[in-house]
Structure formats: structure tokens, C-alpha cells
């Protein structure tokens, strides 16, 4: 247990030292590359803004992600159970996913002018539902027929089979996708906050750092985003342990 915490912390410290050293040895000014020692003052100076905007970014990301889970699972179910629906929806989804979301941001911002929270959540959702839908549909459609048959031969309904077998069996795939989706949702939120700034969120703080040439602040925002990303990621890992821990094999 001690090792499990000590090793990543040691790696982080080593990374910080190396970063500091690299900046120092090259003599880079902080507008080229800020060093870790520049970051703390930047954090401290804007600590209240970090808290306030960090909260904005966090809740929008989480709401967007929850929406992605609900819609992604529904689309995945439809595609997983019906071949026709899969054939019909798949090219649409792939095409939609291929569009760079940076190009969608101004369109959404125009469509729902002034609805900043809604716009941001929408982009976080749009960018993150795809892996969830795909993984759930694959999980359901690759269910071996025998799994269905053991219950179907007893006269169980489709809903019972879904609830008792298909759903739990798909959980490992679902959580795998959720880990990808959680970082994607962050990208979505910040994309909206940076490209269409509206005075809220860490993306806005990043943008103001750019405008006022406060490079350490920009770096500090990046670090803050990384920390939030790690936090959310491990929330997903904890949920996975609770609901799909059975899929993890003990090393033998």
C-alpha cells in the first residue's frame, strides 16, 4: 500500500525536478517555458479565481459526462440489440465523431447564443458519448448466444436477460470507455471555454493569461486541469472497482 502511493509521488517529484533543471540549464525565460517554481506564485495570486473557475469547469464536465453516459448507453443498447439499427447508425456516428469538435464550437455558440453553461455541457457531451456508445454496443452484440440461451430456455424475458446477464457482462467494456470519455469531456469543456470565452471556467482563465502575457498563469491552468483530470479519472477507477471489480483477475 505504501509502495502504491510512494512510487507515483516519487515519479511526480522527479518529473518536477527534471522540468526545473531543463528550464534552468537552457536559461529559458518564463514566456518561453515556465518552470515549476514559477507556478506556485501564479496559483497563489489567482487562488480564488482558480477555485471559482475550477468549479465551473468541473461541474460542466461532470454533467456533460453524465449526459454522455445516459445517451451513450441508450444508443449502445439500440445498436447492440438490433443489427438493422447498428447498420443504420454506425456510419452516422463515425462521421459525426470524425468532425473536429473545434469546428463545432462556433456553430453551437451561434445556435444557442448566451447559453454558456448549456453550450459547454453540450460540447463536453458531444465529444465524449461516442466511445461509450461503441463499447456498449460491441459488448452487447458480442454476447455469446449460450449466455442468452441459459436464461431464454427457462422462459426468461428479454428484459430479465438484459438485466441479469447482458448488462453486467458489458460493465468492463463500459468502464474502459468511460475512462477515455472522462478525459475527452474535459477537452470538450475547455474547448468551449477557450474558443468562445464567456468569462467563466478555467479555459477563460487560460485565455486571460494569454491576453495579459502571463505565461506562468497559463501553465498553472494546465497543471490545474491535469490535477482535475487525474481526480475524475480515479473516481471512475474507484467506481469500476465497485461495479466491475470481478473482471480483474488476481495475479497467479
Amino acid at each position: 500500500m505504501f509502495k502504491k502511493i510512494a512510487i507515483p509521488i516519487f515519479a511526480l517529484v522527479l518529473f518536477g525536478v527534471f522540468w526545473e533543471f531543463l528550464v534552468w540549464v537552457n536559461g529559458w525565460p518564463n514566456y518561453k517555458m515556465a518552470s515549476p517554481s514559477d507556478l506556485w506564485p501564479a496559483f497563489w495570486k489567482f487562488r480564488w479565481l482558480f477555485l471559482e473557475y475550477g468549479w465551473d469547469t468541473l461541474w460542466r464536465t461532470v454533467v456533460g459526462l453524465l449526459l454522455a453516459v445516459v445517451v451513450g448507453v441508450l444508443i449502445g443498447m439500440v445498436m447492440g440489440f438490433s443489427r438493422t439499427m447498428r447498420d443504420a447508425l454506425y456510419p452516422l456516428l463515425v462521421g459525426f465523431n470524425a468532425i473536429p469538435k473545434a469546428t463545432v464550437v462556433p456553430i453551437i455558440a451561434l445556435m444557442f447564443v448566451g447559453q454558456h453553461d448549456f453550450n459547454t455541457i453540450l460540447i463536453a457531451f458531444l465529444i465524449s458519448f461516442f466511445p461509450i456508445a461503441v463499447s456498449v454496443s460491441i459488448g452487447l452484440s458480442t454476447l455469446e448466444p449460450e449466455y442468452r440461451d441459459i436464461l431464454a430456455s427457462l422462459g426468461a424475458s428479454k428484459l430479465t436477460i438484459f438485466w441479469k446477464i447482458a448488462l453486467p457482462k458489458t460493465l468492463p467494456e463500459f468502464f474502459g470507455a468511460l475512462k477515455v470519455a472522462v478525459t475527452l469531456a474535459f477537452i470538450g469543456t475547455n474547448l468551449m471555454e477557450i474558443v468562445e470565452p464567456h468569462g467563466r471556467g478555467l479555459g477563460h482563465l487560460f485565455d486571460s493569461g494569454k491576453i495579459s502575457a502571463d505565461y506562468p498563469l497559463m501553465f498553472a491552468v494546465l497543471i490545474a486541469l491535469a490535477i482535475m483530470g487525474i481526480m475524475l479519472y480515479y473516481v471512475v477507477v474507484a467506481l469500476e472497482k465497485v461495479f466491475a471489480g470481478w473482471a480483474e483477475r488476481s495475479p497467479t
Binding site: E144, E146, Y147, D149, I150, A152, S153, L154, G155, I165, P168, K169, L171, A244, W246, A247
Partner: peptide
Amino acid sequence: GPKSTVGMAFQNPVLLEW
């Protein structure tokens, strides 16, 4: 249709891992 008076076993034991 299916009947609950029937039991089935396959080559794949299909046990539920969870």
C-alpha cells in the same frame, strides 16, 4: 416455446464471472 421444465448445459460452461 421455452419451458421451465427443461435444463440446458453447453460445451462452454457460460458461468457468470461476477
